[in-house]
Write a protein that binds this DNA or RNA. Structure first.
Length: 466
RNA sequence: GUCCCCUUCGUCUAGAGGCCUAGGACACCGGAUUUUCAUUCCGGCAACACGGGUUCGACUCCCGUAGGGGACGCCA
């Protein structure tokens, strides 16, 4: 039987990093097995629903390059609501579900009692065996399922193993609300069944729900999917990953200059492993991804490791792609690139990309090509001042160099340093670097000079000396 | 409170009873390379939560304790 997985986010307005990993795992498993990866939006909560919120999720998925099948169609839980209602009515007709006329106040009291008595099940099943003839006037009932009262239920989970819970911990939960709309618990089961989902990979926080969902599967005599509950991602301090830990949504990571393939590699290794392999590009991940490589314990998010992976993938990225990324980054900054500066950056990229951990950093480091320094930082000023007396000599060097390319230029500087600066290379190179970039750190400076050419180099030198 | 899950270096993890003197990666510290900063390369520091069992032998199996997390909605 072919594998069918699914990713069912609710449109909350942003794509949480944990959800992104869930999507990745579902996608990988489908791709690995040659199965199908489906997309469904859990949009039954109409108050929260908006088209924009859905788009945000889809954008996140597209950015991560996790494509879904079924010709790109997206299932809508809301659109299937009639089917969910029909199923509930079937259960009602079969005597496997019943109307419950409890008021919210009654329920609240039951909750208090349950808690006081140290029970986890809340509802006391008072309407389970009463007929609708006893129904109070004017109360709209909910539909509840008849869950097993005795014994225990076991969930066979691919990650957590066999998890056993006593049935008395569960109560007769709601299928249809008093306004007739289906609850999440019912809808997931029906949709998963109708979509032919064979493997449910989702966050650990759903493990408890699984017991309830299985009650529905059993009542309907449907075959249950294979479950794999993924451990959660925690913040660096071990608590739930929240705003104060930094970026929560994939969109923010994109903003910060992370590459999607780096995100995928990092997220994959957060909770999944294959021996000692660390650098796992996506095609390799598809080849290797098995459920038994999933770890059971929650993992803490580590920005430093993400950055190091990102640096790795930046080095691998083509200069053409990097140019595109830089272009959008500079647009955000309102910095306009001319055909000339564009070319300079492109030529400088081989040196630049070895140094950056993020696209944002890359843009920072490349920006001296785009704009001549308008000011000099403290260290640069000092370098310029310390070498004030030999600045004219450096200028002449630039002006008269017979071959304005990196190596001969460097040789000329070395010779000059030997003659005019007691052999101290730094004394001539640092002010030169400062003049060209406005800073005392930069990519190899003679290469940069070669790229910008004699004219620009001279102009910057003059500006620095002014 | 009740139920469920988890626990190896600071972090992500390898480890399926002897292969473990517990391995790798990131971070950190040192060194080499280098015109700067990086990169790269070499080296170092650093962990089986605790207590009981089982076994000839336990990081690996069992029980308990502690700590962490999750779930207990007419939300999803």
């Amino acid at each position: 039987m072919s594998v069918v997985t699914r990713f069912p986010p609710s449109p909350t307005g942003f794509m949480h990093i944990g959800n992104a990993r869930t999507a990745l795992f579902n996608w990988l498993y489908a791709r690995h097995t040659g199965g199908t990866f489906l997309m469904r939006i859990e949009d039954t909560d109409r108050e929260r629903y908006s088209k924009e919120a859905v788009e945000v999720i889809l954008d996140g998925l597209r950015w991560l390059e996790l494509d879904w099948d079924n010709k790109g169609e997206i299932y809508s839980q809301y659109e299937n609501r009639q089917r969910h209602i029909d199923v509930a009515n079937e259960l009602l007709a079969a005597g496997k579900a019943y109307y419950c006329y409890c008021t919210p106040e009654e329920l609240e009291r039951m909750r208090e009692t349950a808690r006081a008595e140290g029970r986890s099940a809340v509802y006391d099943r008072r309407w389970r065996d009463r007929g609708p003839s006893e129904a109070p006037e004017g109360v709209k009932p909910v539909v509840r399922i008849k869950a097993p009262v005795d014994g225990f239920t076991v969930v066979h989970d691919k990650v957590q193993g066999d998890v056993k819970v006593e049935n008395k911990q569960l109560d007769d939960f709601i299928l249809l609300r008093s306004d007739g709309t289906p609850t999440y618990m019912l809808s997931v089961v029906v949709d998963d069944h109708d979509m032919g989902v064979t493997h449910v990979l989702r966050g650990d926080d759903h493990l408890n729900n699984t017991f309830r969902q299985n009650v529905i599967y059993d009542a309907l005599e449907w075959e249950k999917p294979t479950y794999a509950h993924l451990p959660l991602i925690h913040g660096p301090d071990g608590s739930k990953f929240s705003k104060r830990h930094g970026a929560q949504s994939v969109a923010e990571y994109r903003e910060m200059g992370f590459l999607p393939e780096a995100m995928r590699n990092y997220l994959l290794r957060l909770g999944w492993s294959h021996g000692d392999e660390e650098i796992i590009p996506t095609d390799r991940a598809v080849e290797l991804f098995e459920l038994d490589g999933i770890n059971k314990a929650a993992a803490k998010f580590d920005f430093a490791k993400l950055e190091s992976l990102n640096a790795h993938y930046i080095k691998l990225a083509s200069n053409e792609r990097l140019m595109g990324l830089l272009d959008t980054e500079y647009q955000k900054r309102g910095l306009k690139l001319t055909p000339v500066t564009l070319k300079w950056i492109f030529l400088g990229l081989d040196d630049l990309k070895d140094r950056a951990k993020t696209i944002v950093q890359l843009a920072d480091e490349a920006s001296f090509y785009a704009i001549a320094p308008r000011s000099f930082n403290d260290k640069a000023q000092k370098a310029l001042a310390d070498s004030a007396e030999i600045l004219p000599g450096i200028r002449t060097l630039i002006e008269s160099a017979p071959d304005f390319s990196a190596e001969p230029l460097e040789q000329a500087f070395r010779d000059f340093a030997a003659r005019q600066a007691d052999g101290k290379l730094g004394k001539v190179i640092m002010p030169f670097r400062a003049a060209l970039t406005g800073a005392t750190t930069s990519p190899p400076i003679f290469k940069a000079a070669e790229i910008m050419g004699r004219e620009e180099t001279l102009a910057r030198m003059d500006a620095a000396m002014a």
